[in-house]
Simulated assay, not measured.
Amino acid sequence: MAVAFRDLFGRRGAAKHQDVAARVTGLAQGWSIEITPKQAAKLERIPLPKGTRVNIAYLPDEDAAQILQTAARLVFEGMVPVPHVPARTLASAEALDVYLRGLAAVGVREALVIGGGVANQQGPFSSSMDVLETGLFQELGFARIAVAGHPEGSPDIDAHGLAGALAAKNEWAARSGMTVELMTQFCFDGRQVLLWEQAIRDAGNRLPIRIGLPGPASIKSLLRYAQMCGVGNSLSFLSKRAGNVLQLVTAAEPDGFVVDLANAVAGDRDNLIAGLHFYPFGGFDKTAAYAKALAEGSFTMESDGEGFAVTA
């Protein structure tokens, strides 16, 4: 039996059920998902619809060869690979050049450029902007770039630095002519995300935003990943509502969070939230099936209209 995020977090009133369902389905169109090379290697077949965007996480214990191999496989199976390019992990300008040329050679045309959460900078790049300013993405024919968004701040940069970085990313997007979007770390608190979106929009952000959220997972797993990834507000928020030990091992689903986002987008035509990105903390197959169900409308609204249950 699953516990919905709304039951953990508390909810607001809802609109008509059919309207909310349509909003959820609309927001879920074009969803994307995260994978690691190790996860991909365990899958005989990638269980995703053709054309799905799949972010390939470049973790500290991975290397470029593993990312390239996973990207080539995703292209072969009809997906759209979006490999991470972690600035502070790259040992040299040559390493970046070789990595991006390798990705381009296997058919990659999109990337997520991030600072990279390593304790010690490995080479000349200290930020995502350092990588973007090399001009390599334009030279190699990349068509779409995602950059990081931080609704809960970042352990690597203060609020003033984040504001400056976001302004620089907006300026680079306009100057480069490339399609650029913000992709956030995973979050649990819809209210926090919506306040952040409004704040950065007021400050001048014009980039569309893809919101990161966990797929179905146990509360225990969510707490562990929140702690590992430094999403402090969500960690505190989730800890206060985790309940007893039994609830820690109970599955939680993000339906209430998704409803909040879908209603907010419908109620504000200037809202820049443009899609969902799923982190498969509860298993890749399970998360992929959940995301697919949302996009297909394979869910039933709860009686209060504030959440839903997947039916397929």
Rank of each mutant, 00 (worst) to 15 (best):
R241G: 01
A274P: 03
G283D: 07
L248N: 14
T287S: 08
V258P: 06
G256I: 07
G230T: 10
K292C: 00
A217R: 05
M228V: 09
A291I: 10
P280R: 10
R241W: 00
T287L: 02
L246A: 15
C229I: 07
S239V: 01
G275H: 04
Q247T: 14
V245S: 12
N244C: 09
M228W: 00
G267Y: 00
P254E: 05
N233D: 13
K220D: 13
G232E: 13
F257I: 06
G283C: 07
A288E: 02
F278A: 05
K220G: 08
K292L: 05
A217T: 11
A293K: 08
D270E: 15
L222N: 14
D285K: 15
I219S: 09
A293Q: 14
N271G: 03
A262I: 02
V259F: 01
Y279G: 06
S236I: 01
P216F: 10
A226Y: 03
D260H: 05
L246V: 11
A288Y: 03
T287D: 04
I273K: 10
S218V: 03
H277C: 13
G243Y: 12
G230V: 10
A252E: 00
G230H: 10
I219W: 02
D255T: 15
N263D: 13
G232T: 09
G232R: 11
A289H: 04
G282K: 11
R241M: 00
L235W: 12
I273D: 09
I273G: 11
Y290S: 08
I273S: 11
G282C: 13
V258C: 01
G215D: 02
I219E: 00
A295Y: 06
I273A: 12
A251K: 09
A288G: 02
R224Q: 09
V258R: 01
A217Y: 04
Y279M: 12
Y290W: 15
E253Y: 07
G215K: 02
A226M: 12
L223S: 07
A291F: 11
A274D: 10
G282Y: 13
Y225E: 04
R269Q: 10
L272E: 04
K220A: 15
K240F: 06
F257A: 06
F257S: 06
L223G: 06
G243Q: 10
L294F: 14
Q227T: 11
Y225G: 00
N263L: 12
L238F: 15
V231D: 14
L276E: 13
